[in-house]
Amino acid sequence: MLTFNRYLRATSLEEAYTEAQKKSSVVLGGGMWLRLGKRRIGTAIDLSDLGLCGVEETEDSYRIGAYTTLRDLECHAALNTQYSGVLRESLRAIVGVQFRNLATVGGSVFGRFGFSDVVTVLLALDASVELYKAGVVSLERFCTMGRVNDILTHVIIPKRSLSVSYHAQRNSATDFPVLNVCAARNGEQVTVCVGARPARAVAYRYTLDGTAGKAERIANEIASRAVFDSNTRATARYRRHLCCVLVRRALDDILEKEEA
């Protein structure tokens, strides 16, 4: 059971940031899995009062507050229209509505969990994260960074006309994914993200050259390049196999979509 000695409902980002510099402090996201941790925490920092909920639509992007819930994203009409419903598709299998009403985008992204559905999709949508001190950093770069003491305030998705497809394989309906794949196509540029390998998602970029059988070729190539591992849910060998299947299926979807 997780224990906090102190609970801070921060009144400013500066206050939250200063507190977060202490090793014993933790910035709360949605609060999921509170009972899971054994860690004893000095100060739990709550950003609820800092106006970080909600999606702001600007001319060229969607700026998503860190405390926006997964359920908000799942049900966000404009975002889902813009990106072929891929947010709904990738989020609906996460535990249940009551979980997604709490879990936040910021918490999911900041944790950069290997099993994340959200990170895989956001990566394919070329998202960035906005950190209080460090400013805007691409999600791809953020995924490679070590421990970050900064405060993640927003996730920014650039507005683009993309065809997107998301595929995940799970051993049971609302379990963590064994592997997930999100492919996004912008003209001839294709980004394929592979997550739950079970490590953090990685992105691969291709320029389509119009030859036949490209989906299969790209899928096989990614499967041979990507690093997979085994855990209690699946072996690396199965993940590599799935990678071929799911990448090919995702690419087939977006190539077809384009043609239709």
């Binding site: 899995w33 509170l34 709490l102």
Partner: peptide, 22 residues
Amino acid sequence: TSGCGLCTVFLDDKPVLSCSVP
């Protein structure tokens, strides 16, 4: 592990897992 739904309550009218809300 925030996964069974037995503790569901409404927080401002939204169903949430009360085990996961400080």
